[in-house]
Amino acid sequence: MTLSSRRPASRLATPVPAENGSNGQRNSVVLGPNDRLVGELYIEGDLRVAGTVEGNLEATGDIEIAGAGKVNGDVTAYNRLTVGSDASLIAGDVRVARLTVADGAKFSGKVSMGKVAVEPSKPAEPEPVLVEATPVAKPVPVKPVSVKTEPVKPVPVKAVPVKPAAAKPAAVKPFEQKGKRR
């Protein structure tokens, strides 16, 4: 459902890195003409959509809906949103700092512009948390010892963003087992 399983809990306090890609370049996601996203996407970087999106998009950089791209959902771009001449954006809320709409584009929604309008956007979206919780089944048999001591924090060096979340659900697991025994 969600391409990005990692979402900062407090986005306002999170500095927007100019470069956060693995190779030191600015992060960028491209959805091609045949690509389709149903769900929600948060990305620290830029997003280019030439395919179809049904759901909400949020990017700390630019969002471009290009070609015959279609987006049906709320859009938040901390910097610029560009809607191409053949593109379509049918939104509930559009929160952007800068906006460019080409003649011919389909565009509708409630537009809020300016930095003030963008920063207070904090709709409660617990979905990504659910995504992190689901893979708990795997780590439990691997590290049952970590439940008591919880030394999990130094582990995420392996760049697996899901692991920190495994600490809490792992602690929950034994309680569930006790319940079953009863």
Binding site: R80, R98, L99, T100, V101, A102, D103, G104, A105, K106, F107, S108, G109, K110, V111, S112, M113, G114, A117
Partner: peptide, 18 residues
Amino acid sequence: RRLQIDDGATLNGHVRMG
């Protein structure tokens, strides 16, 4: 019916098109 917004313009409001 048609809309063009140039870079630099500011818009706050609801857009209905079609």
